[in-house]
Amino acid sequence: MSNESKRHDTEPATIVLVHGLWMSGLQLKILQHRLEADGDFRAVPFSYPTLSGSMSDHVRDLLEFARAQNVPKLHFVGHSLGGLVILRALELTDDLPPGRAVLLGSPLQGSRAAQGVARVLPFGKAILGAAINAECIDCQPREWRGHRDIGIIAGSVGFGLGRLFADLDADHDGTVLVEETRLPGARDHIVLRTTHTGMLVSAEVAEQTRWFLREGRFKRSSTP
């Protein structure tokens, strides 16, 4: 085995972290620290302007960033809109290094809260940005047909601004309904006791994310 191969076998796997709407990436610091805590992973944040540019722009920039990492294994973790950007990017290519993806509270089947903001506020669509308008308001049902394992974490603590703009009449995280996070074809889905923004600071979310990236499934009480 070459020295280069030995280095790749021992170095931490790289995770690309993608933030959500109205964020810059700084909000991912606690999650990044927890993902890196045991030394198995190295997390690098990808930042993009959530209110300007289209989903195509965000996807192009993410793929360019991901390819520039030049690593043998590459995982993705995205919160909210960030999960949608990851999903769209992975739908477009199979030439990235192998790895898994975890989507945190992402409205994969549209967003009732976003639809409410667009309907109720005079400049609702403008404050949501083009990507949310295209992916969460005027959208079609989604499913995953790619080869990469995708895991989804939803929250069930219903405190958040989403309740002000829509009737969230089933389990939700204050912004996104649990049913809106489901994705046919995904490898696993789990619901945790957390709010939408609370996912970014939740130790349990970080633990479950690490577990899925290693094992391809979430950790449950029946897991040995």
Rank of each mutant, 00 (worst) to 15 (best):
S47W: 08
V18Q: 08
S47A: 14
G20Q: 03
Y48A: 00
T10N: 12
F46P: 01
Y48F: 06
P12A: 09
E36M: 13
L17V: 02
Q27F: 00
S24F: 15
T14F: 09
G20A: 00
I30A: 15
A13S: 15
H33N: 11
L31C: 04
T50Y: 00
T10E: 11
A37W: 02
L35R: 01
K29C: 11
T10S: 07
I15F: 02
D40W: 01
G53Q: 12
T14I: 09
L35P: 00
T50H: 00
L31P: 00
F41I: 01
T10Y: 10
H19L: 13
L28P: 02
G39H: 04
D40F: 01
S52T: 15
L28T: 03
T14L: 08
Y48I: 03
I15N: 10
H33C: 10
Q32E: 09
W22F: 13
Y48N: 01
G20N: 06
S52V: 12
L21D: 07
L21R: 03
L51W: 04
R34T: 10
Y48G: 00
H19Q: 05
A43M: 08
R42G: 03
L21G: 05
R34Q: 15
P49N: 14
P49F: 11
T14E: 02
L51Q: 14
D38A: 15
I15L: 13
I30D: 13
S52G: 09
H33S: 12
L28V: 08
W22R: 11
G20D: 04
I30S: 13
A43L: 06
H33M: 14
L35V: 10
G39F: 08
T50E: 02
D9V: 06
Q27A: 06
A37Y: 03
S52H: 10
G25D: 01
L21I: 05
S52C: 08
F46D: 01
D40I: 11
W22M: 11
F41W: 05
V16F: 06
I15S: 07
E36L: 05
Q27M: 03
G25H: 05
D40Q: 15
L28N: 04
V44F: 06
L51S: 08
A13H: 09
S24K: 14
T14N: 04
Q32M: 04
K29W: 08
A13F: 09
L21S: 04
P45G: 02
R34E: 14
E36W: 07
V44R: 15
R42H: 07
G39Q: 07
Q32A: 09
R42T: 10
A37F: 06
T10A: 10
S47H: 10
P45L: 05
D40V: 09
T50I: 05
Y48H: 03
Q27W: 01
P12K: 06
L21V: 05
S24W: 14
V44W: 02
W22A: 13
K29I: 13
D40R: 15
V18P: 03
M23G: 05
D40P: 02
L26Q: 13
Q27I: 01
M23P: 06
P12H: 09
G53K: 09
T50M: 01
D40E: 14
A13P: 01
D9A: 15
L51C: 09
E11D: 14
R34Y: 12
S24Y: 06
F46A: 03
L26E: 13
E11R: 13
W22Y: 12
W22D: 09
